[in-house]
């Protein structure tokens, strides 16, 4: 199952709607990095509104994605993290430091606009 990555202007938008098995997560990481290289996207929003569970593996890959995209000169915002997922992540001891977050996809785009303006 490949996660679709949409390009809108200079941004890539991803809304995760599928069950995240390990292979899907790793393919997504690779697809996103390739897409950034291909399109020179300046910003990425990954929307997690429909994701009801994030374990340490998924959290690690998401954190890696954020770091890798920033190494490539792009900025990634995670949006829509559910309260129950946020609580579970904190109890797991995962704080996702230095990661930009937003309430939803719209807010995510606004944050990118602000971070990238000028």
């Amino acid at each position: 199952m490949r996660i679709p990555i949409l390009k809108i202007k200079e941004y890539l938008l991803v809304s995760i709607q599928v069950e995240l098995d390990d292979q899907t997560v790793l393919e997504f990481q690779e697809d996103l990095l390739n897409k950034i290289a291909e399109t020179d996207a300046r910003g990425v929003v990954i929307d997690l509104t429909s994701v009801d569970m994030v374990d340490s593996f998924i959290a690690k890959v998401l954190g890696d994605v954020v770091t890798m995209t920033s190494l490539m000169g792009s900025v990634t915002v995670l949006s829509g993290i559910q309260p129950s997922v946020a609580i579970t992540l904190i109890e797991l001891g995962i704080t996702l430091d230095n990661v930009h977050t937003a309430m939803d996809l719209d807010q995510g785009i606004l944050i990118l606009n602000r971070l990238l303006e000028g």
């Binding site: 390990d22 009801d52 569970m53 374990d55 340490s56 593996f57 609580i87 579970t88």
Partner: peptide
């Protein structure tokens, strides 16, 4: 509750992995 569902599901995922 929804938070405990998330805790339990995540715990299972960690142990299974």
């Amino acid at each position: 509750g929804i938070v405990d569902q998330s805790r339990i599901t995540t715990a299972i995922s960690e142990l299974a992995r």
